[in-house]
C-alpha cells in the first residue's frame, strides 16, 4: 500500500502543506522583528561613516536608535540635486529608499538619499553629509556610506560592506584599518574636477602625501577596483547635489 502512487502523492501533498504552513507562520511572526533588525543594521552602517565601529558596538539597540534620531536628518535628491519628496504618488523618505533596487534603474531615474549628520538635536549645525554607495565587487555586491565634511571635498569617513568577497582578501574592506585610510582624503582636484579617491594596487606604500590615493589591499585588486568605480560612480551621481551645497556655502562664507 505504501508503494502505491496514490499514497506517495497524498503523503507528499500533506508534507508540503504542513511544512509550508510552518514556514509561512514563522515568517509572519518573526517578520516585524527582522525588519527592525535590518533597519537597525542600516542605521549602524550610516553612523559608521561618522563615528568609530567600537563606539557603535558599545551601544545598545535603543541607544543607536536614540543617537540616530538626535543626530541624523535626511533628504532625498534626484540626479540633478533637486529634492524629491514623492515618487509615483507615494511619499519618499531616505530611510526607505532601497539602494540595491535603485541600482538596477538607469542613473537618471534613481533616488539618491542623503543623510545629514548634525550636532545633537540641532539640524542646522551640519557636521557632514553621508552618501550611500553601491556597486560590484569581485563576487557579489558591495556597498557602503561615505561621509563628506561640510566643505563637500574632504572625506570624513567611510563604511564599506560586501555580500560575498573573499574572506581575508576582498572582505577586508569591512575592516576599520582599511576604511581609516580614506579619512582626510579629497574628492576634487585643484581645478575643481571630481576625481574621487582611488585605492591603489599593492599594499604597504605610503600615500599620505596624495589626497586622491589610498593604499591598496594585497591580493584583492579587483575588489579594490570595485570600490574605486563605486566611489566614482556615486560621487558622480551626487555631483549636482555636492556642487549646490558647495556654492551655497561659498555664498554663506562670502557674507
Amino acid at each position: 500500500m505504501q508503494q502505491s502512487n496514490a499514497y506517495i502523492i497524498t503523503f507528499s501533498v500533506i508534507l508540503t502543506v504542513v511544512l509550508g504552513l510552518l514556514l509561512s507562520g514563522t515568517s509572519q511572526v518573526l517578520g516585524p522583528l527582522q525588519r527592525e533588525a535590518e533597519a537597525l543594521d542600516k542605521k549602524k552602517q550610516i553612523l559608521g561613516a561618522v563615528i568609530s565601529g567600537e563606539e557603535i558596538d558599545a551601544m545598545s539597540p535603543e541607544e543607536v536608535n536614540a543617537f540616530y534620531t538626535s543626530h541624523i536628518a535626511s533628504t532625498v535628491v534626484d540626479i540633478n540635486g533637486q529634492e524629491v519628496t514623492e515618487k509615483d504618488g507615494a511619499a519618499v523618505t531616505a530611510e526607505n529608499v532601497d539602494i540595491a533596487k535603485n541600482y538596477k534603474m538607469p542613473a537618471e531615474d534613481r533616488l539618491y538619499p542623503v543623510f545629514i549628520f548634525h550636532a545633537e538635536g540641532n539640524p542646522d549645525d551640519v557636521q557632514s553629509y553621508i552618501l550611500p554607495l553601491y556597486g560590484a565587487g569581485l563576487w557579489d555586491a558591495i556597498w557602503g556610506y561615505i561621509a563628506l565634511d561640510t566643505d563637500m571635498n574632504t572625506v570624513g569617513g567611510i563604511t564599506l560592506a560586501h555580500a560575498g568577497e573573499t574572506p581575508g582578501l576582498g572582505a577586508r574592506i569591512t575592516e576599520s584599518g582599511v576604511q581609516q585610510r580614506y579619512v582626510g582624503k579629497e574628492i576634487f582636484d585643484e581645478s575643481g574636477d571630481l576625481v574621487a579617491v582611488e585605492m591603489q594596487k599593492g599594499e604597504g606604500k605610503d600615500y599620505s602625501a596624495d589626497p586622491h590615493k589610498v593604499d591598496g589591499m594585497s591580493g584583492a585588486t579587483i575588489t579594490g577596483n570595485g570600490v574605486n568605480s563605486m566611489l566614482k560612480n556615486y560621487l558622480g551621481h551626487y555631483q549636482a547635489f555636492i556642487e549646490s551645497k558647495k556654492s551655497s556655502q561659498a555664498v554663506a562664507a562670502a557674507f
Binding site: T26, L30, Q34, A37, E38, L40, D41
Partner: peptide, 10 residues
C-alpha cells in the same frame, strides 16, 4: 536562519 535574522542579525 529566520530566527537568527530576527534575534541575531549580525
Amino acid at each position: 536562519s529566520e530566527v537568527l535574522r530576527a534575534f541575531a542579525y549580525d
